[in-house]
Design a protein around this nucleic acid. Structure first.
Lengths: 327, 327
DNA sequence: ACATCTTTGGCAAACGTTTGCCAATCTGTC
DNA sequence: GACAGATTGGCAAACGTTTGCCAAAGATGT
């Protein structure tokens, strides 16, 4: 309907100046008499005024936009994070811009630049990759929350899980189950999350009596975790020491490993127990053979946004490790 | 680095006025002497000037933002559409805002309003739902592309597949295979896409000799297609006429049906052929038992953006039906 | 009656950009 | 040497908002 309702429209109708309306819109009711406030409020209602975010952003030097820069939207886990964050941001009155870096540093930098130009109010970096622009961002002090992977260039607010503990929990599970030849599969392009999961797993196994050589480690190349699992699976299942329990650091890796296992004629979980860390809801529909540490991605959004709000208020926000369920 | 490089910075350095720089930035080189142009270009380079999209949007009454309003990001198909669209938009110099409506009309309207306030340059509606705001949008003539589901309130540019043909292809497949009791599963909350797929399937079966009563139809309630399939599966497999071939209008429905089939002790595809329409890449990893009409979601982005560009240039763009592969 | 303080509200600048219009300078022609 | 026309570039307004500052009142105290 009204395309052009601005402060001026309201001001004209209420017979006051633009400044007065602006102040009232922003809650400074003390700067006007109650009568004026009422008159202005009526006018706002009557013409259906809504503040223009663009004008506001220009003046304030800051928009209501929050940039989510994610490594790969095709990964259901990230899609869930994006979705829950978007919901939480909307409820808090912000608007999310979504950028998919395909895990590539130069794209990440391109987005970082573009987002600064948009005067975004904050950054949510899901599985960030090291890059020049990112170091610059960290030193600039812009409000930033890292998700899943910690800041690869320095420290910074973090939302995720206790990755080492998750790895250790799987180690305990395998040990308690009486498995003898544990293995772990992870991407060669390693992130803090992968590293911590693997090292937590290895450390606990060591505590429980395994020697380092007794644990099969297999990585896979490339950005697709599905392919990583499939490739690593080939080497694992062809090797002499065929494992009877495998930790996959992500669901998608487990999908790849499982497919290779089927091709090798193995029964999962009969011949080999498979456990992954992610536990996306799709698992119980299409991969009931997969046990998982369930990461509560659906609540990430709320945590991320409350972290951002803390940062905006100048309060400290170090990290938030969310509890996982083993299901 | 430079936080505050504006036209004024460049102008000062090049010793010209802001207007001159603005014109040169926008390619109007005829309004300045070659010498001036060179000097300004050098200055732009030197200070690393990048136009501020906010100032520009305010002046032009239109931003570089494009709103994607999607029904449910947790659905991998939509995530792929979002991802490919985002890539195509970035390559064309635009920035995508992502909104997840969770298939709810009131949220869709909230977003439609918010996006108009952001002066977005266009709208991409993935699986739009009927709503007052949407009818208003259609009549307003704002650049809009509908994806997957046609405009529920009127007509409008559309990117998708030939849904009826896809349904018919599955019917032919079942018939050629010699299956006797075909079934179709679809969500009760129906969209143009679901409806056309189902009716194309039924029509072709009729042509090939089936009577309407001989075809099992089952729908399921709710927004989760997984649940839709699971619930409909219960009724299908408990019925007397157990089908030997089922068309599921989406992958997720097939996942749900399959799970129910397993629980009923059926073998897929031995006891019952399952075919879905979607064919997301995940299928071959986690659901190799599922045959699909493969919708090329990964190329939707390019089609959507070229459609938008046509509309922006004032050229006509009716619909673009992409070819599918049966795999 | 005067000084002082508070209330109420407007003016105008600023954010960064674009663009219509006007002014100065240059080129060429008569 | 004067005039038309083209070239080159700046001024200023506009987009919608926020906010420092000032001014006109009214309220209070002496």
């Amino acid at each position: 309907m009204r395309e052009d309702v601005s402060l001026a429209t309201v001001a004209a109708r209420a017979g006051v100046s633009v400044s007065t309306v602006s102040r009232i819109v922003n809650g400074q009711t003390r700067r006007a008499s109650p009568a004026t406030v009422a008159r202005v409020r009526d006018a706002i209602e009557a013409v259906g005024y809504r503040p223009n975010p663009v004008g506001r952003a220009l003046q304030r030097g800051q928009s209501q936009l929050v940039a989510m820069i994610a490594a790969n939207l095709d990964n259901p886990a990230m899609a869930t994070i994006a979705s829950s964050t978007e919901t939480a941001l909307r409820e808090a009155g912000y608007v999310m811009i979504l950028c998919d870096t395909h895990d590539r540093a130069e794209l990440q930098d391109e987005y970082l630049f573009a987002m600064r130009a948009q005067m975004v109010r904050g950054y949510v970096l899901v599985a960030a990759v090291p890059s020049p622009g990112l170091s610059e961002l960290s030193t600039s002090g812009a409000p930033t929350v890292f998700v899943n992977r910690r800041n690869p260039s320095g420290s910074g607010p973090f939302v995720g899980i206790d990755d080492a503990a998750a790895g250790a929990a799987v180690a305990d599970y395998f040990a308690d189950l009486g498995r003898r030849v544990p293995a772990v599969v992870f991407p060669r392009l390693s992130s803090s999350a992968s590293r911590d999961r693997v090292s937590g797993f290895l450390a606990r196994l060591r505590e429980r009596g395994w020697s380092d050589e007794a644990i099969v480690r297999a990585d896979g190349e490339g950005r697709s975790h599905l392919q990583v699992g499939y490739d690593a699976g080939a080497r694992i299942f062809d090797g002499r020491d065929r494992p009877d329990a495998i930790l996959c650091v992500s669901d998608q890796i487990a999908y790849g490993v499982n497919r290779r296992a089927l091709e090798c004629g193995l029964k999962i979980p009969g011949d080999c127990e498979l456990v992954s860390i992610d536990g996306t809801p799709l698992n119980k529909w299409v991969a009931p053979w997969l046990k998982s540490i369930e990461i509560p991605y659906a609540v990430y959004g709320a945590e991320i946004v409350s972290g951002l709000q803390l940062i905006w208020r100048g309060e400290p926000f170090g990290e938030r490790l969310l509890p996982c369920k083993f299901g």
